[in-house]
Amino acid sequence: MTPAMLALERVSKSFLRGTPNEVRALRDVDLAVAAGDFVTVIGSNGAGKSTMIKAVAGFAIPDEGRILLEGRDITRRPPWRRAATIGRIAQDPNESTCAGMTIEENLAMAERRGRPRGLRLAIRGDARRRFRDALAPIGLGLEDRLASRVGLLSGGQRQALALLMATLSGSRLLLLDEHLAALDPKTAETVMRLTDRLIAERRLTALMITHNMQDAIRWGNRLLMMHGGRIVLDVGGAEKAALTVQMLVDKFHAVSHAEMVEDRVLLTA
């Protein structure tokens, strides 16, 4: 049997450990993601979604448990030693691109993902043509603005660029931490379609956190709901396709015992 693309084995992570304010962000989380799976992740604030993504990316080291990437234990590897395989986009467009550098410089940095960086000019040979070819299908006109600073772009343009950077060069696992949350609905739709297309085209495995339950149902082939640091719902295939927002809300209420009204507002928004 081939190992899963990504496996979490009894992963726990607490913040402010040993203080009265201890937060148990992940509690004995077990998860196996097969290559090619596109998993959407929902859950209220503090459910552990972001911590799970950060643990996979290497920005939060678990207190207990193991994380395996294609069968290799990466639990304690620093982020830069996982980057050859993992592409990641955060909610804030400022986090996944470099605002003070140009589009072509950002793409050149992304193109060298996980490979040694030496003293060759970053933009050399036919790099500009390659970048134009990669940017043109996005349809945002970025291919004509290679020398523009990324800070001049809109949030949607920056997230689209971030997507390209995350998928440009050999990454096999894509981590999306509410990458649409800062965008207006129309732009979010455009960027989401691009996300889906890139995942399909490059045959990526993907984990996408979203606050939008409709999106969680509509995209991907597997859905996780997290609550209190645990995975409380895990559905795939036909069962996932048959889900409705109401079913998710009901499931959520079944696992949470407080703040039902507030949560209904939050979850259906």
């Binding site: 990316a57 290497g58 920005f59 620093p78 982020p79 830069w80 030693r81 980057a83 050859a84 993992i86 592409g87 990641r88 955060a90 400022n94 986090e95 996944s96 691109t97 470099c98 605002a99 003070g100 550098m101 410089e105 050149a108 940095m109 992304a110 060298r112 993902r113 996980g114 490979r115 960086r117 030496g118 003293l119 060759r120 000019l121 970053a122 933009i123 950077m165």
Partner: peptide, 25 residues
Amino acid sequence: STDLGLAVRATGQNEPMILSLGVDT
């Protein structure tokens, strides 16, 4: 303007990003 030079600049500007692209900051 080199690969290493861009990584050095990005380290000051956006360390999480360049870490995520595989650079030992």
